[in-house]
Amino acid sequence: MSLQLPDKWIWDSWYVQVDGVTHAYYLHASKALGDPERRHRHPIVGHAVSTDLTNWTVVQDAIIISEAPAFDDGTTWTGSVVQADNGLWWMFYTGTSRAENTMVQRVGAATSPDLLTWTKVSTEPLVEADPAFYETLDLSVWHDQAWRDPWVFRFPGESTWQMLITARSSSGDPRVRGVLGHATSENMRDWTVQPPLSQPGQGFGQHEVFQFEIVDGVPILLFCCGVTELSPQRRAAGEVGGVYSVAVDRRLEQVDFTGSVLFDRTDLYAARLLQDADGGWVLLGFINIVDGEFVGTLSDPIPVTADPVLGLVHRQAEDSAAAPDTCVI
């Protein structure tokens, strides 16, 4: 049974796998709101645990909005969790403020010794969009200031922390300004915003919920995009939006989204890559729209592997994982 809350909607999620236990952090909101679109302004970051990616036990919520004034006194949205070298866990997440009508997105952090109890680092954000590279709020161009969904990781053998961010370029056709935002840090608290790792004009108004993994030897960048934020060309080709993937180089130095491929489970959104107990890769995301209605539950794990051209594809039960270095792009 996938994670379902009878009185709440679930959407974006992010995960930590440690000692045979998967910790799911996810956005949820009460169905008492009536309209599921209202959930975006009433989110709580929930927490559940599982040993098989199918049966989940809900534990205490992780974080909620701060008391005003704070960069996150309006909403706390999607993020990621990593462990520092001293063992402390860091959750990087998106915050918006009521003073700006939740229109401006910034990235902050909370820490935890045990993945259960979280303490916010600051009422101020740690990472903000740099207008030298990225679009800032202009409601005549876009519906918000996109700077969210931080995915934090390190390249193997390196000490520098990398952050991938949903962002938009400060130039180009407003319909397709989506770029791969980028920031770096040596200590997880002080971040330097870098130029984007991709160019605008590659088919997307924005790319949500990034994740970078080496899947069965193929470096893969995972993201999602709604139909209204696709390029006119992709919409004309019949794409309905959903979960996308694209094969990239191992250091994300030549990211080109024009080759991105839509995963065929178009009811799935904001999916994440995880590994099951046998080491095989699976996708977990939330079930979005089915028969015109928002569902708002997590999916069961979907076995996947990667292809250098097609990106993520379904993995058959008899498939064996490729050696980690069988494909270098």
Rank of each mutant, 00 (worst) to 15 (best):
L5G: 10
P6K: 00
D7Q: 04
I10V: 01
D12L: 10
W14Y: 01
Y15D: 00
V16C: 12
V18Y: 14
T22H: 05
Y25E: 10
Y25T: 13
S30E: 13
K31T: 07
A32N: 15
L33T: 07
R39M: 02
H40Q: 11
H47C: 00
S50V: 02
N55M: 06
V58D: 02
V58F: 09
Q60G: 12
Q60K: 15
A62W: 06
I64E: 13
A70L: 08
D72V: 08
W77E: 15
G79S: 03
S80K: 14
Q83P: 03
G87I: 13
W90E: 09
M91L: 06
F92Y: 01
R98I: 04
M103V: 11
V107F: 11
G108K: 05
P113Y: 10
T117W: 06
W118R: 01
D130R: 09
F133W: 03
Y134Q: 15
V141E: 14
W142M: 02
H143T: 07
D144W: 14
Q145E: 15
V152R: 15
F155P: 14
G157E: 00
M163C: 05
L164V: 09
S169A: 10
S170R: 12
V176G: 10
V179Y: 03
V179G: 08
L180A: 12
G181P: 07
H182I: 04
T184K: 03
S185I: 00
N187C: 12
R189A: 03
W191E: 05
T192A: 10
V193S: 08
S198P: 03
S198D: 03
G201W: 09
Q202P: 07
F204P: 14
H207A: 06
F210Q: 13
F210I: 12
E213I: 02
D216T: 03
G217C: 04
V218T: 09
V218W: 01
L221C: 03
L222A: 14
F223Q: 08
C224A: 10
C225Y: 07
L230T: 02
Q233F: 04
R234P: 11
A237R: 14
A237N: 01
G238P: 10
E239R: 10
V246N: 11
V248C: 08
D249W: 02
T258I: 04
S260I: 02
S260N: 00
L268T: 11
D278L: 02
D278R: 04
I287W: 01
I289M: 14
G292Y: 01
E293W: 09
L298Q: 02
L298M: 15
D300A: 11
D300R: 10
P301Y: 06
P303Q: 11
V304A: 05
P308Y: 13
V309H: 11
G311M: 05
S320L: 11
A321G: 12
P324T: 05
V328T: 15
